[in-house]
């Protein structure tokens, strides 16, 4: 019983620890003071008006969204064929191929960012949208591959063969049989890919400029020099957006993976 109480105390401490910094930022963004204060002094939404009327923030937000969406789309176009090849065919170097495509998951993003800057310098691919995009595609493709691969099972292969035996061609089979079965993995992978790209700093920081910036890199640059409530408002806007995304995932895909079978 003592042990059980101890576990509850550690757990509640852990949950508080996880919520505190985010709650502090949301709270601080509501202050009426000109400096960052928590607990907030008075309540106002004026700092949100400040950021949404600031063209630099709006431009960075659009860049981040556009970058994350493009990177996710290209990642799907690369990962799905790769997953099909790995799950459906035997070919020499198969293990190495999938390890190669999954390896950005464990590689420090900072190292990859530095590498792309140095390599991009030699072919003129630096400090523009395309330079950002290729790096983001490399880091998000493994997320899609990893969620789609387990869904391309043996049973499903039989369904594909049946579809072909009944006269459907490869393309029709893919869209009518294969795609519906990997859809859930594709959605989950795409969400992780989008978020990973949207919140990335370590890779983007090498190729962003004053004119072309993503939201996290811009925040990073501001936070190091000046701290005022508008930065808390930007942060809290991203926290609220993340919360909305998670609740949407919970309602569609479901987040009950910590639930045991017997309750």
């Amino acid at each position: 019983m003592i042990l059980r109480n101890l576990i509850c105390i550690v757990a509640l401490f852990g949950m508080t620890f996880l919520v505190l910094p985010l709650a502090v930022l949301v709270g601080a963004s509501l202050t009426t003071s000109e400096f960052l204060a928590f607990p907030p002094q008075g309540l106002t939404l004026k700092w949100y008006a400040v950021i949404f009327s600031n063209p630099t923030y709006v431009a960075s937000f659009l860049t981040s969204t556009w970058l994350a969406a493009s990177a996710t789309l290209i990642a799907i176009l690369l990962a799905v064929p790769a997953a099909l090849a790995v799950s459906r065919y035997d070919f020499p170097g198969k293990g190495a191929f999938s390890a190669f495509l999954l390896s950005p998951l464990v590689l420090p993003h900072l190292v990859l960012g530095a590498a792309l800057l140095q390599f991009g310098g030699s072919i003129g691919l630096t400090r523009n949208f395309w330079a950002l995009l290729v790096g983001h595609v490399v880091i998000v493709t493994p997320f899609v591959l990893r969620t789609v691969l387990p869904l391309l099972s043996r049973e499903q292969q039989a369904m594909e063969e049946a579809s072909r035996d009944l006269g459907a061609d490869g393309v029709t089979t893919f869209f009518l049989v294969t795609l519906p079965q990997i859809r859930s993995g594709l959605v989950a992978g795409a969400i992780f890919a989008f978020i990973t790209s949207f919140i990335n700093v370590e890779l983007s920081i090498f190729n962003t400029t004053a004119e072309l910036n993503t939201i996290p890199v811009q925040l990073f640059n501001y936070v190091q020099y000046s701290v005022d409530p508008s930065i808390a408002a930007v942060s809290s806007a991203t926290i609220v957006a993340a919360a909305v995304a998670i609740i949407l995932i919970d309602l569609t895909v479901g987040l009950d993976f910590l639930t045991t079978n017997d309750d």
């Binding site: 505190l20 700093v201 996290p216 925040l219 930065i231 991203t238 926290i239």
Partner: peptide
């Protein structure tokens, strides 16, 4: 929720 939030935002919270 923290996993869906940028490292910047989370570290900034601790700076405060």
């Amino acid at each position: 929720l923290p996993l869906f939030t940028s490292n910047i935002v989370r570290s900034f919270g601790w700076m405060v």
